[in-house]
Simulated assay, not measured.
Amino acid sequence: MRRSLVLAALALASIAAPAGAQEPADTVVFLHSLAGTPALWSAQIDALPAGVVGVAPAWPVGAGAPPATIEAIAAGVAADLAAGGVSTYVLAGHSAGGSVALALAAANPEAVRGLFLVNTPGDLREIPADFLRGFVASLREGDYEASLRAYWEALLTGSAEGTAAPVLEAALAAPPEIVPGVLDALLAFDPMAALAAYGGPVRILTGPDNEASFSLHVLDPTLDATFVPDVSHYVQLDRPDVVSAALRDFLADLNGGE
């Protein structure tokens, strides 16, 4: 029997399975994007196969400024999962949530059965220094809300009806120290080293805004990557059917095609 769970700051809330229900065949941990919420994965959690548990932690964990590195953010998520009794799982990460998933898998390869990455950034250390750093500076020194809204509206280019409202609402509600702090961490993160340290199964979905020279699947063409056309950065909201089906296929492959 499938259960959906949400973890936030060491508190585990769950829809309990009925008495006598079998243990789940898999647990999938869904990591949302920067300044997102677990609800942005709701369509995929609802579409999980019978017997699979969906866990959606909110990150970064705790109040105040985020940790200085993606690895430290991932360690907070891993501690939350352990506190909630979640020990072995598949990680599904969107955007910066995919970067956190990579760091978590690199540090805990024995716990992670597979990585399912949706529009996860590549090696941002390779982009021009004034691009994202200029945005980070505008958040800290300029009109925070105007800068944030303009950047997120660009991410939403090509989005389907109904995608923009929950995304913008979540981004504008995030504490103002979160976005620049996590972006600083992303600009120092080495995703290819994390992939190499993990060494397990990986499946990637990308959209039109993730086809740069520093994208994961471009840096390593051997990665199992599928391009999804006509979407914004929020692929799982624009094409929930495509992302849900791809995740189910990945889970089936991890279980020997079952």
Rank of each mutant, 00 (worst) to 15 (best):
M1K: 01
R3N: 06
V6H: 01
V6E: 00
L7T: 00
A9D: 15
I15K: 02
A17Q: 05
P18I: 04
A21H: 11
E23D: 15
P24L: 04
P24C: 10
P24E: 12
A25I: 15
V29S: 03
H32F: 11
H32G: 03
H32Y: 12
T37W: 12
P38A: 03
A39L: 14
A39C: 09
W41H: 14
S42D: 15
A43Q: 12
I45L: 14
L48F: 14
P49Q: 12
G51S: 10
A56P: 12
P60S: 04
A63G: 10
G64E: 10
A68F: 06
A68N: 09
A68T: 13
T69Q: 10
I70S: 01
A74W: 13
A74N: 04
A75V: 05
G76Y: 02
G76E: 03
A79V: 09
A83H: 15
G84N: 08
S87N: 11
T88A: 14
Y89S: 05
V90R: 04
V90D: 03
A92D: 05
G93W: 05
S95I: 04
G97N: 01
S99C: 07
V100E: 00
V100W: 03
A101T: 02
A105H: 11
N108S: 07
P109H: 09
V112Y: 06
T120M: 03
P121A: 01
G122W: 08
L124C: 06
L124T: 02
E126L: 15
E126W: 10
F131N: 08
L132H: 06
G134A: 05
G134F: 15
G134H: 13
S138E: 15
L139R: 02
R140T: 04
R140A: 06
E141Y: 12
E141D: 12
G142N: 04
Y144G: 08
E145D: 14
A146G: 03
S147N: 11
L148A: 03
A150Q: 10
Y151E: 12
W152D: 04
W152S: 00
E153F: 10
A154T: 13
G158V: 01
S159N: 12
G162I: 09
G162A: 06
T163F: 08
P166V: 06
P166A: 03
V167S: 02
E169K: 05
E169G: 11
A170Q: 07
A170R: 04
P175T: 00
P175G: 00
V179S: 02
G181I: 01
V182G: 00
D184A: 03
D184F: 04
A185L: 08
F189G: 00
F189E: 01
M192C: 07
M192T: 06
A194P: 15
A197N: 03
A197C: 05
A197L: 06
P201L: 01
V202G: 02
I204S: 00
T206R: 01
G207D: 01
N210E: 10
N210V: 08
N210G: 05
V218M: 11
D224C: 10
D224T: 08
T226H: 13
F227A: 09
H233K: 07
V235C: 10
D238C: 06
A246G: 13
L251Y: 13
A252S: 15
L254D: 11
G256T: 10
G256R: 12
E258F: 14
